[in-house]
Design a protein around this nucleic acid. Sequence first.
RNA 1: GGCGGGAUGGCAGAGCGGUCAAUUGCACCAGGCUGUAAACUUGGCGCCCUUUGGGCUACGCAGGUUCGAAUCCUGCUCCCGCCA
Length: 415
Amino acid sequence: MTVRIPNEAEMDWLTRRAVAEIIPYGEFVKALKSGKALRLKMGFDPSAPDLTIGHAVGLRKLRQLQEFGHTVVIIVGDWTAQIGDPSGQSKTRPMLTAEQVKENAETYLRQFFKIVDRDRCEVRWQSEWFGKFGLSEVVRLAAKFTVAQMLERADFAERFSAQKPVGVHELLYPMLQGYDSVAVQSDVEFGGTDQKFNLMVGRELQSEAGQAPQIVFTVPLLVGTDGVKMSKSMGNYIAVEESPSEMYGKVMSIPDPMIAEYMEYVTDVADQDVAEVRRVVEERTGNPRDAKMRLAREIVTQFHDAGAAVEAEEQFVRTFSKRELPEDLPIREVSFSTLTSEDSANGDGVRLPWLLTHLEMTASASEANRLIKQRAVEIDGEVVEGARAPLRDGMVIRVGKHRFLRVVDADGGPC
RNA sequence: GGCGGGAUGGCAGAGCGGUCAAUUGCACCAGGCUGUAAACUUGGCGCCCUUUGGGCUACGCAGGUUCGAAUCCUGCUCCCGCCA
């Protein structure tokens, strides 16, 4: 496999766009110019299987470097997953079983290879080396660090001074991750800015082991769709496997000040254009919505394709701007006669709260009741007033802005 | 090992014998306004029902005191801190 040396513009793109920090910067530039195939390490915890476009920031960088002939080494953190990465966590995570880890890892890799080129990637499991580790090795590894060093980590220090628990096993996390670098002989390790400490530990252990210390490459963290840190638990993320229309819609819901940032980090939109968008948003010289629509198209195109992006946009305009029904209205077939008998319907039809809950459009009948009272439920375009409504084959129920359903009679006709 | 503090709805955090399905903030949902932005504003936010009402289940777990307990007592479980 031949390595191509980036020209000046490419070098600039590689080392500046969507980059937080490269330590040491000079080494990295030198390494890219050396013509040597680099081993680009990235680890992941198979604890949270959904990849988000936040992860895509780093993965895109890996992909770009693959195009120049470098090799990605992805580490499946099957041991560290059992600890749970303490980075940015306010509390310790529950440990996972071996089966869960395996399953999660598969899911993760499937998504990972949507961005990263599988042919120029090496998949390594931590158990390859940690499986053979004995207590003496663990002690030897731990002996290389002091408690004070570990407490340099911002999140450990914060938790410690806030009198929140810090598990002893958590101190092991950075060491294990660092040792991975020794095991796979990595040249560069990638991670979010919150990973900096862990990545630096790798450098330390590599020089101890007589290897050239890896270059640390951090990418910025993408904030969530609500403007705060993107995380699974907040539900404010956009998954890479999301459907085109979901993805498009979620992008449209991000706050304006984040548009330029998203563009810079997860798209290839030219720097000048990103700067222009930033200016438009700040100075309010145009409608930021247009910039956001472009961003949404770019993102959908990247994770699906251009056709899907156009379609998602049409769908979006139709449903939300024009308030019409979406084209790909979900359809639910139910037997009207069963519904009628189960609900002891009378001449006025079935009880709506019960029906909505039965159709899983609302979590409970109480919730449905509230929504009806708040005039948030429509049937065939009419706001629902009463508690009962007649069934009609093909009726369209809408709850709030986002929930739609076309109900079709499974009995095949009026009952 | 000793001493002390605590466990309340998604989170934070009030309540300390009845008026508590439980103050408040955040998060969330819905209506209005809009660009599914922000800001603002209104309502809501345990479950079920024939819904200006009724019923059921809930304040770590198990018992007890009482006409009545999230609130008092006993035991258990778990968490946190300090000292050793």
